[in-house]
Design a protein around this nucleic acid. Structure first.
Lengths: 335, 335
DNA sequence: TTGAAAGCGCTAACAC
DNA sequence: GTGTTAGCGCTTTCAA
């Protein structure tokens, strides 16, 4: 601890080391053209003084902010209810920790939040942005790109394919789930879809159709949901009413699947004996439903990691490619 | 859109308005001593140019960073599995949105994360910090205070009471839960505690003891857990073995309660008929256990909000008081 | 009420 | 390999 209350400046380090600020700066940013001797002197001064560079000053001088923002644009609290949110952040954080970037979090669901994000990006308050959970025609998507900072999407907006994104293989995962049901001998398979104004909803539905088509089965047993538990219950009831021959159902989210299971139990249908159920996401709850839910696990933490890697590369001026991450079927008791 | 690629500067605004940078700056920070006329001219210039102040430059000049950090220090993934994390952030965000602060997120569980946090605070990279989920003797706690920025704790460390914190009424909640069991006619009540090296674990245990003492009941049916589902199962088994007369159990977390319910089912004990169970936290899963879990709900989002409010006041130079937020018993089927 | 100018702490271009 | 210095964009005295 020095006597001073204010943190030491680079200039003070320079004085202490008996060198110029230029040299000190070079050492800190480990540039070449510094003698071993000078380097050592500077390093000693730095830790004698406990010097830590001032971020604002550096940002001002370099015109890079040293921070990225993770923007979550969702009016859907269910996004949070899943481990989804926390896992993405864990992944993002893991990669961020390897760099010296800071992580800014912006919840951009509200109008206010969107404005804040806009401000931050416009004012070059961040070197890049990761966008999560966009709905159809979300203005955020183009806005971020207009701001001129690199943008990486987690998942894809429905209306356009952004230049850089990382997404789970929703379509493949759905297909895999349905193929599993078929392999178990199910034939009259229905689905409760997610919201069809979201890419993820559509993809999973397409995966269902694909698997059914490949097996030459009818894909007309369909009810629409919105990923919420209630909509799953409603969709299940509808399927049951409209298609009494149903012997299996692919439900596009675990939350909906939980709702579906409740309806099946209430109506006295045995799962999986009579009707098999597969969900999607592998949220914690999936292990605690009755029976435990067979579901498709997404690599959520990996999604966060890869988004961040792509963004970091972008910031470094590279040209990474979009990524699609594989999903995995987790077999439990419900199918 | 101006032709220039780089955002407009304050100086350009000044030129456009035919005024000095000093005046423009005054308008922006709405200081007094600006004529109506000047103010209008500046405002027009600002939105003609689409001017947005540069955060780094402002920080450098004012010596305030305009950002706060939310640091989560936990090696316990269960913290994330609850809605806890997401809800706190939602609360924090709500208050942050009312200010023009930015929110920095730091996961400080790893050594690396801790170092990052230290750097940020030491370098005045943030105007304040909120600390979540500290274990006993967590160095972060004192470190943050040493850095000389305002610190607000979410929950309390065990070893000392920080000057500013916001906590749920864990003790009161536990007492309420146990009193409810007693009111239902239960007498041989046991508890599976949380980790007793955390304030929250101890508080809930004390709440249990308090309620039992007030009713002149024996509080010796105790098993220790660590908030994990597995430890709940183990603790339940232990209680059952050691106290065959058990007729109710207060389990200090829902995750543990889920484990406890599994054991009770496996051993053929009927819940709540034979043994009543109450959990704590009201995580999503609580609605899906068999039977649905009676539990104590914490005001998690409010916790995030209040932490942030306290921090903002601190940054503004006020002296707020610590806060304890009430909990609520949610009665379902397990007790 | 307004203008001028000196920093805030750092980087980077240029000279030596 | 090292020192010097002019900014980066803003705020904030101090004069006028």
């Amino acid at each position: 601890m020095t006597k001073s209350d204010r943190p030491p400046t680079l200039e003070e380090v320079a004085q202490r080391a008996g060198l110029s600020t230029g040299t000190v700066s070079r050492v800190i940013n480990n540039a070449q053209h510094v003698s071993k001797k000078a380097r050592q002197a500077v390093e000693r001064a730095i830790d004698e003084l406990g010097y830590i560079p001032n971020t604002s000053a550096r940002s001002l001088a370099t015109q890079r902010r040293g921070a990225v923002v993770l923007a979550i644009s969702s009016d859907d609290p269910a996004l949070f209810a899943n481990l989804f949110f926390a896992e993405v952040i864990t992944g993002v954080n893991a990669v961020i920790e390897e760099t010296d970037l800071e992580l800014l979090l912006v919840l951009a669901a509200s109008e206010r939040g969107r404005e804040r994000l806009t401000r931050i990006l416009q004012s070059r308050g961040a070197d890049g942005v990761m966008l999560l959970a966009l709905r159809e025609n979300d203005p955020l998507s183009t806005m971020a790109e207009d701001a001129g900072v690199p943008v990486v999407h987690g998942g894809r907006p429905l209306d356009r394919t952004p230049q850089w994104y990382v997404d789970a293989d929703n379509r493949g995962g759905a297909r895999q789930a349905v193929e599993y049901l078929i392999a178990q001998g199910r034939r009259n398979i229905g689905t409760v879809t997610g919201p069809l104004d979201m890419h993820v909803g559509v993809s999973r539905y397409l995966g269902f159709r694909e698997a059914m088509a490949l097996a030459s089965l009818s894909d007309t047993r369909v009810a629409n949901g919105d990923f919420s538990e209630g909509s799953g219950a409603k969709g299940m009831a509808q399927l049951l009413d409209e298609h009494p021959d149903l012997d299996a159902v692919f439900v596009a989210s675990d939350a909906m699947a939980a709702g579906a299971l409740t309806v099946l139990r209430d109506r006295g249908h045995e799962v999986p004996g009579e009707i098999a159920v597969v969900g999607f996401n592998d949220i914690v709850t999936a292990q605690h439903t009755q029976p435990a839910l067979t579901t498709v696990r997404q690599p959520i933490e990996a999604l966060g990691q890869e988004m961040t890697r792509v963004l970091v590369r972008l910031i470094d001026g590279e040209r990474p490619t979009p990524l699609i991450l594989p999903t995995e079927l987790v077999i439990r008791d419900s199918a």
